[in-house]
């Protein structure tokens, strides 16, 4: 039984990029890449976190994407909510205008990228990002962050975190294509973005975000692999 499930899962994993490839061929001329994370489907398995690290060679203790765990309530009425985080590829990003050398910019297709050849590693963009989405990579001397696995995307594949998401919580695609999976989710479900008050116009959407962010004092504890330890609200 387990073997059967495993083999089906592996098949699905192999099939996904091919399906995406076929869909990408029909994609609109001007793609606009967007991610939706359905928190009601996230099981907190950390596959996205681990696969991203492997795919992009992210050093130990650093993350391009990570999963925060929010434990709510008091025993016996407790509940865990998982909040996967990554760069929001904001439409009005704080990280872009502050870069002294123009090494970080937003592409036409909506992806905010870093030019690793030009970046001097000053860290200003890391400080400016209100989402803590960037880190200074000690191995390369530049900053780094999620780029939706640009190398995979140009090969017609989805980002590693999407293809490895066992709960199907990460949905990725071209928002300009009404047939794309993201467009369908965006038109059928209520979505929200993280900290909209920053004015950054984040472009990673969440389904069921309220439960993860509307927490009063003393109502929950947070476990974040980037911070370490357990933080009480």
């Amino acid at each position: 039984m387990v073997e059967l499930a495993e083999s089906r899962f592996i098949k699905l994993q192999e099939e996904l990029p091919r399906l995406f490839n076929r869909w990408i061929e029909k994609k609109s001329a001007n793609p606009r890449w967007v991610m939706v994370i359905d928190l009601t489907r996230c099981v907190g398995c950390y596959s996205c976190q681990a696969s991203c690290k492997m795919e992009n060679g992210v050093p130990y203790e650093y993350f391009r994407t990570h999963v925060e765990v929010i434990e709510r309530g008091t025993y016996p009425n407790v509940r865990r909510v998982f909040l996967p985080r990554l760069c929001n590829h904001c439409d009005n990003p704080s990280c872009v205008p502050v870069c002294p050398v123009g090494a970080t910019y937003k592409r036409e297709d909506g992806i905010v990228v870093v030019d690793y050849e030009r970046c001097i590693g000053c860290g200003y963009c890391v400080q400016a990002c209100p989402y803590g989405a960037r880190y200074s990579n000690p191995e390369t001397g530049t900053v780094d962050k999620c780029d939706y696995c640009l190398h995979k995307l140009s090969d017609g594949e989805v980002p590693a975190c999407v293809s490895n998401c066992m709960g199907g919580a990460r949905i990725f695609g071209d928002v300009n294509d009404p047939e794309s999976p993201v467009s369908k989710v965006l038109s059928s479900k209520a979505v929200a973005t993280l900290k909209p008050e920053t004015g950054n116009d984040p472009r990673v959407y969440y389904v069921g975000l309220e439960e993860a962010t509307k927490i009063g004092p003393g109502e929950a504890i947070v476990i974040n692999p980037k911070v370490g330890g357990v933080i009480r609200t």
Partner: peptide, 8 residues
């Protein structure tokens, strides 16, 4: 001061 999760 660091943010462990939004608003935390």
């Amino acid at each position: 001061v660091i943010e462990a999760s939004p608003y935390v």
